[in-house]
Amino acid sequence: MAEIDYSDDSIRSLDWKEHIRLRPGMYIGKLGDGSAYDDGIYVLLKEILDNSIDEFVMGSGRTIEVTVTDKRVSIRDYGRGIPLGKVIDCVSKINTGGKYDSKAFQKSVGLNGVGTKAVNALSSSFSVQSYRDGRTKKAEFEQGVLVNDQPETETTQRNGTAVVFYADDTIFRHYHYIPEFVESMIWNYVFLNSGLTINFNGTKYFSERGLYDLLTRNTDVETIRYPIIHLKGDDIEVAMTHGQQYGEEYYSFVNG
Rank of each mutant, 00 (worst) to 15 (best):
K107S: 08
L231F: 10
G32N: 10
F181E: 02
R23P: 01
T203H: 13
T170H: 14
I28K: 02
Y189I: 00
D149R: 10
T67V: 11
V147A: 01
A139I: 06
I82P: 00
Y131F: 15
R173P: 00
D213E: 12
V109L: 06
G79V: 02
V114P: 01
T197G: 06
A2P: 04
S10Y: 07
D220A: 03
G195Y: 04
Y131C: 02
V119C: 05
G97P: 02
L45I: 13
V73N: 02
K93S: 11
N51W: 02
R225M: 12
I75D: 07
K204S: 13
D38T: 14
Y250P: 02
H242R: 15
K103G: 10
A36P: 00
D5G: 11
I75F: 05
E47T: 09
N188R: 14
E65Y: 11
I178T: 12
V163G: 01
I228M: 06
S108V: 00
Y246T: 15
H19F: 03
S207P: 01
T63L: 13
S194P: 15
K204W: 10
A104F: 12
G40C: 04
E249L: 12
P179K: 08
D220T: 04
Y177K: 06
V43F: 12
F105D: 03
I171A: 07
H19P: 02
G40T: 09
G98D: 06
P151H: 11
T136G: 03
P83H: 08
E65H: 12
K93W: 00
Y175N: 05
I28Q: 04
G32V: 12
S125V: 09
L211S: 03
E142H: 08
Q129F: 03
S35E: 07
T116P: 07
D133P: 05
E208H: 07
I82T: 08
E249R: 14
S124E: 13
E180Q: 10
M185G: 06
R135Q: 11
L146H: 03
V87M: 02
S123I: 07
N120A: 03
Q143M: 08
M1G: 14
Y250N: 14
E47W: 07
Y212R: 08
D9P: 00
Y166C: 10
K138C: 05
Y246F: 09
I20A: 05
I48Y: 04
A104Y: 11
H242C: 12
G61P: 00
G59L: 08
Q245V: 13
S74Q: 10
V66K: 05
K30N: 13
F181A: 05
S10P: 02
I171H: 09
T219A: 13
N255A: 07
I229Q: 15
T116Y: 08
Y246L: 13
V147L: 06
E140S: 14
E154I: 11
I53R: 08
E208V: 07
N218I: 01
D149W: 08
M185C: 05
S130K: 05
K86I: 09
S127W: 02
L111I: 14
L14E: 07
V57Q: 05
P83L: 01
T203E: 15
Q245G: 07
T203S: 11
F165L: 04
G202F: 11
S7V: 00
S102F: 12
E180L: 09
G110W: 01
P179F: 03
T197L: 01
G32A: 14
R225F: 11
A121Q: 10
V128P: 00
I41C: 06
F200R: 05
Y27P: 02
Y37C: 12
P24G: 01
S13R: 14
